[in-house]
Design a protein around this nucleic acid. Structure first.
Lengths: 198, 198
DNA sequence: ATTGTATTTGACTGATCGGTCAACTATAAT
DNA sequence: ATTATAGTTGACCGATCAGTCAAATACAAT
């Protein structure tokens, strides 16, 4: 049976790094293999296609990200404070993910969603599911806040969507300006989205 | 002198459509030429590179978009109402821009910024400038609102950035969900971003 | 030692990538 | 008619694209 080879993991890691730092279309299978020290024949032993690899990469990133998100949204702080920390979390992640040309790489999900939603339905649905998970975790935090009366009664679902959209938006601005601090600066507005629409 | 050939315009239009519907890396020069009924040799008579074409395409899109943005931000409505109409404008544009596979294509600037900011510095700066222009037009409207006391005194610059970021964010969510109505639905939250941070 | 399976390798396919270029044609001015 | 310029064409470049495959190798169980 042969215990799980680490070639597959190296491919996954390489693909994650390269695609996040650039884009799906710009990174070829050959380059991923070179980076992972694996021959292309082996790549197609582990993955049936570049599409399937990408699906696996998305899951791989989610597994890691989900931990960080949980830490932020399940901390000891009050619900509203936890929401307030979301931009700081995004800022920290983006400060770490600087590519070799000194550019911030943005949100890997947002990047792939932008690039692939019009091109690959399977990938689009995969990312849509991840977005739904993120939104529902934000919504859960909002519900807690409403319950303990820290937050006024609101439409928690659309507010959670709005918060997530705002996060993706400020990450895009920061990426285009190549200035991670923009995430922190604009992040301060995030709690304004939490209030009853009058 | 020979009056401006329309080959160049056909190339520009084709590139705009194809790149907006898919992505920069996924659309090749040959495909653009086929779509424009132009031979590749002619392409390189008019444009020195794919990069320069893309810069021209961005300007081309901006010229069109700027008109629509002006109409929205300089209408007869009150400043706050004009801001409120931004998501509706985005919704209308995105409802029109459906590709042949039935997918909404999102914001052409946001798409290119996401894909190219880490790959091409010239394109990144070009898009950054356009973002600055959009933000400053939003800020101008906010300033009017503050002046006529429809809007509480706020940091108009960062608020304008926040509004633009939010717009980009909801367009991304709508694209990933392939549901233009999401822009309208989440757009309702946009005015919450306009209030003094307490 | 033999068998079966897991993994790796490198050569290969046909198509496409961005870009170049010399030759050609069309047009207008003189 | 001649010349100059503007625009067009198709063949071509080396590199790379995603994907295939038969053969070689490694390894474990018997």
């Amino acid at each position: 049976m042969g215990r799980t080879s680490n070639a597959k993991e190296r491919i996954l890691d390489s693909a994650q790094q390269l695609i996040h730092a650039r884009s799906y279309s710009d990174v070829g299978v050959q380059e991923i293999c070179d980076y992972a020290n694996v021959k292309k024949g082996s790549f197609y032993y582990y993955f049936p296609s570049k599409q399937e690899l990408t699906l696996a990469v998305i899951d791989h990133i989610w597994d890691q990200f989900q931990v960080t998100l949980q830490q932020t949204l399940n901390s000891h702080l009050s619900p509203l404070e936890r929401i307030r920390h979301l931009p700081l979390m995004a800022y920290q992640i983006n400060s770490l993910n600087i590519n070799e040309e000194g550019k911030i790489t943005g949100c890997p999900f947002g990047n792939l969603a932008t690039e692939m939603s019009t091109q690959d339905e399977k990938i689009r649905l995969h990312l849509d599911n991840i977005f739904t998970k993120i939104v529902s975790q934000i919504e859960q935090t909002l519900k807690e806040g409403v319950q303990c009366e820290e937050i006024h009664p609101i439409d928690t679902h659309s507010t959670a969507q709005a918060i997530f959209a705002y996060l993706e938006g400020i990450i895009l601005l920061a990426k285009t300006h190549n200035q991670p601090e923009m995430i922190k600066a604009l992040g301060g507005h995030i709690t304004q989205l939490i209030s009853p629409i009058h």
